[in-house]
Design a binder for these strands. Structure first.
Lengths: 343, 343
DNA sequence: ACAGTCGATGAAAACCTTTGCACTGTGAGC
DNA sequence: GCTCACAGTGCAAAGGTTTTCATCGACTGT
C-alpha cells in the first residue's frame, strides 16, 4: 500500500493542504512547518499519486510520442531525444508504434488523447483531414510534416538534398539518379523539391526513380534501375536503401565508388560502418526529438501563443568514401581489365 | 471538456453505475438497456478517464519498459515486441532509457513505480541488491538477466554460442577468438560459458579477448588483437562489434572470409546488409519483448503464482557469407599472390 | 396466494490530490 | 486600544470512475 498525503499530514501534525502546499508552493508555508513536512515526506518516501493529481489538475505529466516504426534507427534516435528532453522536464513518455499504418496511427493518437498532455507525432502518415481532427482534441507537434495551424519541427531535407547534389556535381557527375521514398511522406516531397532545384541550378541532369519503400530490400532492385539509367551517381532516399544499392552493385560486380558514387540520407550509425563508408546527409534526429518536446512544452504552457510555430533544423552532408569523380567516358565504355588498374 | 460517464448516463436515462457496468460487465445489465447505453457512449465518443479509473482500481493500465539504449537496434526490437503485446492487452507502454547507467536505471525504475502496474527491465545493469529493492515495490520481469525470485525472459545465448562454435569447428577452424562484451551483463557471462563448454566439447582452442563495450568502435582495435592472436575465426560479442572487425580487417587488407571467418551475435537487420553478409547468431528480440509483457501480465493477474518463472527462448545461428573453412596452413604462410587465386 | 430468489438498477462511498474559501492570530498604523 | 491587513493554516469540494450495498419488481416453487 502506497503512502498517501494523509499519512504524511498525520505524522507531521498538519493538514493535507499544508503538505500539498509545502511540496508545490513552498513559499506559502512557514519555513519551520515546511521543513518538518518535507522531512516526514522524505522519510516515508512519499510520492504524489499522479492519477489523483491529474484528476484535479487536468494535467497528466505524460507526453505521447508516436512513430511509424521504433525499430527504424531514424525514429529510435528521434525517440531518444524526445525522451531525454521529457525527462528533464519531469514528464514521462508514452510510446506508440503505428507500424507504418495510417489507420493505426489515427487510432493510437485518439486512444492516447486522454492520457497525455500532448503528442509528438513523427512523420505522420495520416491524411490532412484526419490530422486536423486529431489535433483538435489534443495539443500536438509534428515532426517532419507540415500542416497549416500545427506547430512542427522540420529537418531541412531540401537543403540536405541540395548539399548532396552540389557535392556530386562538384565532383563532375552530370547525370545522377534519385531514388524516392514513400509518396505520402512530407520528407519525401521536400527532397524531391530540393533535388529539382539544385539539379537545375547546378546544371546536372536528375533522373527520378521510384517511389520505393524506405528499406534495404527496396535498394536491391533500385540498383539495377540505376545502372540501366546511365547515371554515374545515385542519391538514395535513406541509408537503408543506399545499403541495398551498395549490396546489389557488389553482386553485379560494379565497383563503388569508382564506377558508381552513392549517397545515403539520414546519417544513421550504420552509414559509418559499411565498407566503403557511406557518404550521407546527416539528419539532426535526436535534436529534432528534443526540439519537438521543447515546443510541445511551450505550447502547453501558453496555448494560443505559438500554434503556428515551425522550427527548421539544418542537415549536414557528411562526405565519406562512396563519392568520387566519375570515370572518364572512355574508360567507362572500356574493358573491365582497364578498370582494375584504376581501383 | 471531455465527455464523462455522467453525461452518458444522463443522455441514456440511466445511472452512472449502469453505464459503468454496461461497459465493463455487460452481462449484468439487461440487453435493451445495454444497447441503448452503448449506443449513446459510441455517439458521444465516450472514453473512460483512465486516471479516475486508476484511482479506484489501483491499476493504471500502464506498463513500463526500461532499456539501456533505445537507439541500439537490439533494444528497439525488444521494445517493439513489448509494445505490440501490450497494445493487444489494451495496456500502454511507458518508455525509459537509462543511457547504460545503472544509477539512472534505478532512479527511473523508482520514478516509474507508482505510475505503472509493472515494469519490464531489459538487460538490467544495476546490482543485485538494488534490483531486489526495486522489485520489492513494483512487479517486474527481467529480460536477459537472471535473479532468484524474479520472473525473467532469457535468450539462450549459451546455446547460440554453442551453435556458433560448432559451426566454425565443423568448418575446420582449430583456434578461434572470442570478443567479450560488458562484464556486468548476464548475457556476456552466458556467452562465455557457452564458449568454454562448446570449445572443450569440440576440441577447439578458444582465445578470449576483451572485455569491450558492445560497439562498432570497439571492434576496430579488437580486430588487430584477433589478427595477433593467430586465430582463424572470430566470434564477436554482437553484430555492431563484428562490423567494426570487418571494417578494420578490410583496412588491414585481410580478406573475409578467406583469411578470417567472422561471426556476429544478435541477428540485427544490419548483419544482413554488409558485404559479405555476416554470419550471426539470431536472437529472438521481438519475441522476447512480447514474452516479457506476457509474463508480466500473468504475474499481475495472479501475483504469488509465478514469481520464479523464467522463460528461455532459443537462439538460431544464421549462416551467411563470412564463415568458410580456414586456409591450409601452407597457404596462409605463403605469398599474397597465391591468396588471390583463392579468392 | 405467499415466501423466497434472482435479475436489474440506483445511491453513495471510496480512491488521492489540489485549491478556493474561511478562519485564526499577529503586527502595523492611527 | 482599535481596526485592518496579512501570513499561515485548515476545511471541504471537486474531479471521474468503480464497486458495495440496498431497493424494487417479477418470477419460481409450493
Amino acid at each position: 500500500m502506497a503512502v498517501t498525503i494523509h499519512e504524511v499530514a498525520r505524522r507531521a501534525g498538519v493538514s493535507v493542504s499544508t503538505v500539498s502546499r509545502a511540496l508545490a508552493v513552498p513559499d506559502l508555508v512557514r519555513a519551520s512547518t515546511r521543513d518538518r513536512v518535507l522531512a516526514v515526506a522524505e522519510e516515508l518516501g512519499y510520492q504524489p499519486n499522479r492519477a489523483a493529481r491529474g484528476l484535479i489538475t487536468g494535467r497528466t505529466g505524460n507526453i505521447g510520442v508516436v512513430v511509424p516504426d521504433v525499430a527504424n534507427p531514424f525514429f529510435s534516435a528521434v525517440l531518444k531525444g524526445a525522451h531525454a528532453r521529457a525527462r528533464e522536464a519531469g514528464q514521462v513518455v508514452f510510446l506508440a508504434d503505428s507500424a507504418e499504418d495510417s489507420r493505426v496511427e489515427a487510432e493510437l493518437v485518439a486512444a492516447m488523447g486522454k492520457q497525455v498532455d500532448g503528442i509528438v507525432l513523427c512523420s505522420a502518415r495520416m491524411g490532412d483531414e484526419e490530422l486536423e481532427r486529431s489535433a483538435g482534441s489534443t495539443p500536438m507537434v509534428l515532426v517532419n510534416r507540415r500542416k497549416a495551424g500545427l506547430p512542427s519541427v522540420l529537418m531541412d531535407s531540401a537543403d540536405g538534398m541540395r548539399q548532396a547534389v552540389e557535392h556530386v556535381a562538384a565532383l563532375g557527375h552530370r547525370r545522377i539518379a534519385h531514388l524516392s521514398g514513400p509518396v505520402r511522406s512530407w520528407s519525401s516531397a521536400e527532397r524531391l523539391r530540393g533535388l529539382r532545384e539544385a539539379a537545375a541550378a547546378s546544371g546536372v541532369e536528375a533522373v527520378e526513380i521510384g517511389p520505393f519503400p524506405p528499406t534495404f530490400e527496396a535498394g536491391l532492385p533500385a540498383a539495377d534501375l540505376v545502372l540501366a539509367s546511365g547515371a554515374t551517381a545515385v542519391l538514395a532516399y535513406n541509408d537503408l536503401m543506399a545499403l541495398g544499392v551498395l549490396n546489389r552493385l557488389a553482386v553485379r560486380g560494379v565497383v563503388v565508388p569508382a564506377e558508381m558514387s552513392v549517397v545515403g540520407f539520414d546519417g544513421t550509425q550504420v552509414s559509418a560502418m559499411t565498407t566503403p563508408a557511406l557518404t550521407t546527409v546527416g539528419m539532426p534526429t535526436e535534436t529534432a526529438g528534443r526540439a519537438a518536446v521543447e515546443l510541445l512544452l511551450d505550447v502547453l504552457a501558453r496555448p494560443e501563443h505559438h500554434s503556428e510555430a515551425a522550427r527548421t533544423l539544418p542537415c549536414q552532408l557528411v562526405v565519406r568514401s562512396t563519392t568520387v569523380p566519375p570515370l572518364p567516358q572512355a574508360v567507362r565504355a572500356g574493358a573491365p581489365a582497364r578498370l582494375e588498374a584504376l581501383t
